[in-house]
Design a binder for these strands. Structure first.
Lengths: 102, 102
DNA sequence: ACTTATAATATCACATAACGATATCGTTAA
DNA sequence: TTAACGATATCGTTATGTGATATTATAAGT
């Protein structure tokens, strides 16, 4: 655990993934860059298995696209993924009202 | 994973734990009740090892107290725990501005 | 055409964590 | 003294996290 607060924030990463998968779709490297912008350092050895599991769990669907000759795998949220996101939202609200506002 | 969004929310539970450990201290059963109020079902087999790990990681300190004859172990946040919490707060803010507000 | 560089994704091996079921341990009530 | 109970601990299995490394495919250089 490199960063002091890493163990608390792994779920946050997945939620960001779900959100972006719902909003616009992304491939692995896109997501790593996006997460880096938010201050999360996540390596391919963590991200890719996570994407695979989220897909197996039915939260994400993937599609292979050729782009500049490269094959890239794009992920989108499934209905189940969107449902999960909608259930997570109020929990974020609770966390805020407790941890941020008090 | 019983609940659809459980895997995303485990970190939330730890953050609630950290928050309450900072604010008022608690013992295991208190925490289970508190989390239940927030809609998280967490069993002793998950909570206690988590508390132990958080203590080993230096986030929590514990103190045994006798209460109605029962020995109960109370947990408080350490300086490191409070530091972690202060680093987590802005991440919650980011999550909100992205997932809740957009 | 062949080699090299590069970019995206996948896998391996090990360590750590989640969690239901069950056990332990100490105290009070009968 | 022992039965019941409440709080915490442990076990065993399965799942997850992670760095390091491999694979795959195209593009660029010679």
């Amino acid at each position: 655990m490199v960063d002091i607060s890493r163990e608390f924030l792994l779920g946050f990463i997945k939620i960001h993934v779900l959100y972006h998968a719902d909003k616009e779709g992304f491939c692995g490297v896109d997501m790593m860059k996006e997460l880096k912008k938010h201050g999360y350092r996540i390596g391919p050895g963590t991200l890719y298995p996570t994407l695979h599991r989220m897909q197996e769990g039915g939260y994400l669907a993937s599609e292979k696209r050729k782009e500049n000759g490269r094959i890239r795998i794009y992920y989108r949220a499934t209905p189940k993924g969107r449902l999960a996101l909608s259930r997570i939202r109020p929990k974020i609200g609770e966390l805020v009202s407790e941890v941020l506002e008090h």
